[in-house]
């Protein structure tokens, strides 16, 4: 057991975790942030993507103890009350959601991308999102959603 301190979506947590607990499991099962999903458990699908200290990471292959002192953002922190983020709005508008299982991970990868690069090219989008598998949409609408979100944020003048 170790005691860890971290913030999730701006809220402070102090928590006892076992050494071998995975961050994704702690987020989902202890803190009930079930938005992040487990699609593979091995860093290969991106469904568990959260943002840790500003960077998109696959939380299924990170120990909870490694998150000590970090600042974590999950899909649950992307909307405030009835207000959803530009990225979320863009995903809806572009019909980039089918079953929705990959969606939280996609949105978090998109957020990390736009935070560091407000006007991404197709190639930038491919690099940032190719670790997020979607089996439903064929990705076309997702790419459009990322671009639309960038426009909403004022990144692209086109």
């Amino acid at each position: 057991m170790k005691t860890i301190n971290f913030t999730v979506n701006g809220r402070n947590y102090k928590l006892d975790v076992k050494d071998n607990e995975i961050l994704l499991d702690v987020l989902r099962e202890k803190l009930h942030f079930t938005g992040a999903k487990e699609g593979c458990g091995e860093g290969e699908c991106g469904a568990c993507t959260v943002i840790m200290d500003g960077k998109a990471v696959t939380s299924c292959i990170i120990l909870a103890v490694e998150a000590d002192g970090s600042d974590i953002e999950t899909i649950e922190g992307q909307s405030v009350g009835e207000e959803i983020s530009d990225i979320q709005e863009a995903f809806i508008e572009e019909n980039a959601i089918q079953c929705g299982f990959c969606t939280p991970g996609m949105v978090m990868s998109t957020k990390a991308l736009l935070d560091r690069n407000p006007d991404p090219s197709d190639e930038d989008i491919d690099i940032a999102l190719s670790g997020n598998i979607c089996r439903c949409t064929g990705y076309y609408s997702i790419r459009n959603a990322v671009k639309r979100a960038a426009e909403k944020k004022g990144g692209s003048q086109s």
Binding site: G43, E44, G46, T49, K55, A56, V57, T58, I61, I62, S109, I127, A128, L129, S130, G131, N132
Partner: peptide, 12 residues
């Protein structure tokens, strides 16, 4: 390095 795994994984 860009050939290693996916972006999220490369962050670790």
């Amino acid at each position: 390095a860009l050939e290693v795994a996916a972006h999220q994984v490369r962050n670790r």
